[in-house]
Amino acid sequence: MTSVANGNVIEFRNVSYRLSNGSELLHNLNLEVQIGETLVLLGRSGSGKTTTLKLINHLLIPSDGEVQVNGRSTRDWDVIQLRRGIGYAIQDVGLFPHFTVARNIAVVPQIEAWPADRIQGRVQELMKLAGLDPQLAGRYPRELSGGQRQRVGVARALAADPPILLMDEPFGALDPITRVEVQREFLALQKRLHKTVVFVTHDLREALLLGTRIALMEAGKLVAVLPAKEFAGSPDPLVAQYIAAFGPEPNT
């Protein structure tokens, strides 16, 4: 994928998304994701974060408006090509239970028909990158701890070196200690890789730690987009409300 002149890798233009029964999950969203940044979509359950994310890789199709990736509407993309240029890591991880760790990480290179030795090298490289013991390569997902599974999920999303990464609460199922650990690793990783990341979470602390900018969503609408550094001090009443609701000691 080529980068675009204005630095916007992803653009939402007046995007609404409705279910077939008419209920609106997303209302008139306008949002840009800039190259190399980590944009966090923050909000509570049902605010439309995941819907927003799935519109990017065309798992969902906008009811109105359009989503552009690299300057081209997702409607005009060959959907398979679009998705192979976008890494995707989700909360339930979605690891293939019948594949070993190595095979899971190798899924995209495999469907892209890389030669076997290149795949093997890439898998080893990614396991190291994601902090996974090489001995785990032959294990099945059920034999891993929650933290290891999440790391495999991230490694898999990075496998074909996609310029864009979509992450839907990828660390949501982890205990607080492991979570902090994985978040730090991700931060270090991102400093080296400079991917364009869209990261969904409801966890304020995670958003502040990982985000370049934070987009707060509520009931299918975008409330505010702010640089992460300015988020906590924002005068916006809805932002203040979310921060207050989260409490002085975020516990997740």
């Binding site: 979605g94 293939f96 995209v108």
Partner: peptide, 23 residues
Amino acid sequence: VDRSVVEAARGMGMTDGQLLWQV
């Protein structure tokens, strides 16, 4: 088949045939 697994497969760019045969 677990929906999250199918969704991950789609999101990663598997064609319908690959989804069927591999997953």
